[in-house]
Design a binder for these strands. Structure first.
Ligand SMILES: Nc1ccn([C@H]2C[C@H](O)[C@@H](COP(=O)(O)OP(=O)(O)OP(=O)(O)O)O2)c(=O)n1
Ligand SMILES: [Mg+2]
Length: 800
DNA sequence: ATCCTCCCCTAC
DNA sequence: TAAGGTAGGGGAGGAT
């Protein structure tokens, strides 16, 4: 711990009025108690047995044997795809117990619950706001004679904390309140208002434009990073000379940089979908909310002073006629794909994705090669072509600025907009730049401007700043920033297009809707964040060596309720970091590292307004740790893989995945944090919904794998502690390999169900029982994580 | 000097 | 009501 001071909030950039309200709640740090897991497992066991009972006895004959509690009264249930019990059986049970059975899913308003064993990614997206539950919900509810909370049986979407609490809550007598039987339109996702509510994170992210912006950017970066590399390789190969890029080949060749950017992107998409709004001031945001932010507004609105990022309230004041349209996140992706597909064909030497609607091109070669024509003419011709093609495809206008470096290209774009193009020469660029306010330079903002003005109040423009000289600027802004400003003020910018380096960090952060009333809720939310962080790490094939927890805490004089509903208001930020040991990472490791960090912070729980977790010092998942040899049989599942290309590298614990990451695990602490119950599907061991298979293994070794699993369980059941955690991990890794590499979700489900079946029949004592269920839960949780990639994968592979 | 931790700032 | 995320550059000041 070096300088451990918290920020004072005095410097905070957020600007809200003061009101002094003091609130209760000190800190009450106790051991994080997540309760009695033994108890949970025992319940689960009973549940399973009862499940079997029900299945056995649910023949048509027992219909009259007793009266049936009308537990499904008010529920309208639709059954999707293959299920166990079968659809007819479910139909019978539902009707028998007072429920309504729906043959169609036409009107979601009538159907209250959807039963499915598994969902195709498409359906998953389609039904993401619906109550989709496993058949076990029906079976278990009937079995217990009361309607169980449906979210304990959700499928498709990885649930985290909430299940945990609710499972325990419903242990005894909780039945579902009438509101739970409300039609699907009022789904629980809508009540996930604050971070203390279950399902908050997913719900929140699905609506956050900034989250979308960030993930799109990351995606584009990783996509075009490699593409650029390939492109460059081709270039230098045809050059048959060296690896010098074309733009650096001739001595001081002036670069030609294009900055391509959709005009008021979100607003343009909104106008495209609603042509009747042409000519009106339009913006995109959560309309009808006075403190909602405007993501984008069209140029008509801008004329009246409206700006991106402004709150609705203020925009309405400036422009009372402004029309607010909702977000259309999928449409933005489509339009962006159009843009990038054109850019890839543009003949650029290099491409750098700046954002979903914006990119930089190094067009030096294309503009200078057959040096005949004027560079400006050539550039404008090329940019006109790009703009035409993008418009043809997307029906949205783009503007292009052309300059000799990134800075100048961006300046040119400002002059080009809207729906235009501009070639700026050095002299003009210098003129324009000189007149800009300091904060208008890209990369400098209001803070730097005021940092200068604090000492030298007369300095406003870039040319003013230039007159201060390098030393003075560095004194005011720091070494690098001072130099940057001076260079920019002279029109100089050395940044190279496409020189984005490897990712250095992965983080997950929420600063809206964060309101806690107990430390337990805080810890629970940290778990949700950890799971999300882990999900992203797995997807990237990365692990990290350092973890940082950051929280936002209400500033001392900030009102308890900031102007923005559930916003963070003015905050101070506190962060603490720690190192993560080992070559592997998993959720529990993250949680175990994060909770002590939380404990190092001092704050009033109810004043927490934001939380984030960041992983730094990224490294590939790798195998720099030898596995501890064990006596008992280990699960050599990869060795049995009938895939010759991977056979050699994917062996046992030293598995190397195609995409360059290894999976390796430390031993797990099987304690309270590990064993978060999931809504495991209490159903089908048979063939799952065939829809879910994307690519089938040509030589199906499922039978062999099942034998292997069974043998492994047979052997390890004899040991006191049952299957070794490492082997469980191996199985998890294999599942992840199946889903991510082989795109065979079906097989993963199949194997996991088989394992469940084997486990169920093999447990002799309580300890083994606990172990078995730990294994089961652990695998299901993993599959949840893995399956949440399905739609990404399908998007990537172009699967319809 | 250089590294590390805990910030702040900027962009979309 | 409202969905204020996230990666990277960078600075201050202490530890090495
Ligand atoms: N504070 C902001 C700024 C931008 N965006 C989103 C909406 C924008 O449409 C998109 C692109 O940002 P731009 O800065 O390119 O702004 P626009 O495309 O809206 O306008 P223009 O590029 O014409 O200036 O990012 C956002 O949600 N919130
Ligand atoms: Mg734009």
């Amino acid at each position: 711990m070096a300088s451990g001071g918290e920020s004072t909030g005095a410097k905070s950039r957020k600007y809200f009025d003061d009101r002094q309200v003091s609130e209760e709640q000190g800190k009450e740090y106790g051991p994080s108690e997540f309760g009695n897991f033994q108890q949970y497992y025992r319940n689960k066991k009973i549940k399973l047995q009862n499940h079997d009972e029900i299945l056995k006895n649910s023949g048509p004959s027992d219909e009259s044997q007793k009266d049936h509690p009308q537990i499904f009264k008010g529920c309208c249930i639709y059954v999707n795809g293959y299920t166990n019990p079968s659809i007819t059986e479910l139909h019978r049970i539902i009707v028998l117990h007072g429920g309504k059975f729906s043959q169609y899913l036409d009107s979601k308003t009538e159907v209250t619950h959807i039963i499915a064993s598994s969902l195709t990614p498409k359906k998953l997206v389609e039904l993401r706001t619906s109550r989709v539950v496993s058949p076990a919900w029906i079976v278990d509810s009937v079995n217990q004679g009361r309607l169980l909370p449906w979210h304990d049986f959700r499928i498709g979407i990885p649930r985290t904390s909430q299940k945990f609490l609710e499972t325990r809550k419903c242990d005894s007598a909780t039945t579902v309140p009438p509101s739970e039987r409300a039609p699907l339109v009022t789904d629980s996702r809508q009540s996930a208002k604050t971070a203390a509510d279950p399902g908050f994170l997913e719900n929140y992210y699905s609506r956050s434009r900034l989250h979308h912006l960030s993930s799109w950017k990351a995606e584009l970066r990783s996509k075009y990073q490699t593409l650029i590399l390939n492109h460059e390789q081709q270039e230098s190969r045809t050059d048959s000379k060296s690896s010098i890029s074309p733009s650096e080949r001739d001595e001081p060749t002036q670069r030609v940089i294009f900055h391509v950017d959709f005009d008021c992107f979100f607003a343009s998409v909104a106008l495209r979908s609603n042509p009747e709004l042409q000519g009106m001031p339009v913006c995109v945001g959560n309309g009808g909310s006075q403190n909602a932010e405007i993501a984008s507004c069209n140029y008509i609105a801008r004329k009246q002073g409206v700006k991106n990022g402004m709150w609705m309230q203020q925009a309405k004041r400036l422009c009372p006629d402004i029309v607010c349209m909702p977000y259309q996140f999928e449409e933005y992706e489509v339009a962006s794909n159009h843009l990038y597909s054109v850019l890839l064909e543009s003949g650029a030497d290099k491409i750098e994705a700046v954002s979903i609607d914006e990119a930089l091109l190094d067009m030096t070669t294309a503009c200078t090669s057959e040096g005949a024509t004027d560079i400006a003419d050539r550039a404008l011709l090329l940019s006109q072509g790009i703009r035409n093609r993008v418009y043809e495809l997307s029906k949205c206008t783009v503007s292009i600025g052309v300059g000799t470096n990134i800075l100048q290209a961006k300046i040119a774009t400002k002059l080009a907009k809207p729906n235009g193009q501009y070639f700026i020469n050095e002299t003009e660029a210098l003129e324009v730049i000189s007149k800009l306010r300091i904060s208008e330079l890209p990369g400098l903002g209001p803070s730097m401007e005021s940092a200068i003005q604090r000492k030298s109040p007369s300095i406003r423009t870039v040319s003013d700043a230039r007159s201060l000289g390098k030393a003075r600027l560095q004194q005011l802004l720091g070494e690098k920033n001072g130099e940057k400003l001076l260079n920019y003020s002279r029109g100089i910018d050395d940044r190279v297009v496409g020189s984005i380096s490897e990712r250095k960090s992965v983080s997950v952060e929420v600063n809206w809707g964060v309101r806690f009333s107990s430390i337990k809720q805080v810890e629970e939310f940290i778990k949700s964040l950890s799971q999300e962080l882990y999900r992203r790490l797995v997807k990237l094939g990365s692990r990290g060596e350092a973890l940082t927890l950051k929280i936002q805490v209400r500033a001392p004089n900030a009102p308890v309720d900031p102007p923005k509903f559930l916003g963070c208001g003015e905050c101070i930020s506190i962060s603490r970091s720690t190192s993560l040991s080992g070559a592997s990472i998993d959720i529990d490791k993250i949680v175990h590292a994060a909770l002590p960090l939380l404990r190092k912070m001092t704050m009033v729980v109810s004043d927490i307004r934001g939380m984030g977790l960041q992983i730094t010092k990224l490294a590939p998942f790798n195998d720099d740790r030898k596995s501890t040899p064990k006596e008992q049989m280990s699960l050599d599942i990869f060795a049995g893989q009938e895939d010759s290309s991977k056979r050699n590298s994917l062996v046992s614990r030293d598995m190397k995945f195609e995409n360059g990451f290894d999976l390796e695990y430390e031993d797990i602490d099987n304690d309270e944090l590990l064993s978060r119950p999931d809504a495991a599907n209490e159903s089908d061991t048979d063939a799952p919904d065939p829809d879910i298979v994307v690519a089938t293994d040509s030589n199906d070794d499922t039978v062999y794998l099942k034998m292997l699993l069974e043998a492994w369980l047979n052997d390890t059941a004899g040991y006191q502690y049952g299957p070794h955690d490492d082997d469980v991990k191996v199985f998890q890794d294999y599942l992840s390999y199946l889903v991510l590499q082989k795109k065979n979700v079906c097989k993963a489900h199949d194997l996991i169900d088989w394992l469940r079946f084997c486990l169920g029949s093999r447990m002799q004592n309580d300890e083994m029982m606990d172990k078995a269920y730990y294994v089961e839960e652990s695998l299901y949780r993993w599959l949840d994580v893995v399956c949440s990639y399905e739609k990404d994968i399908f998007a990537m592979t172009g699967f319809r």
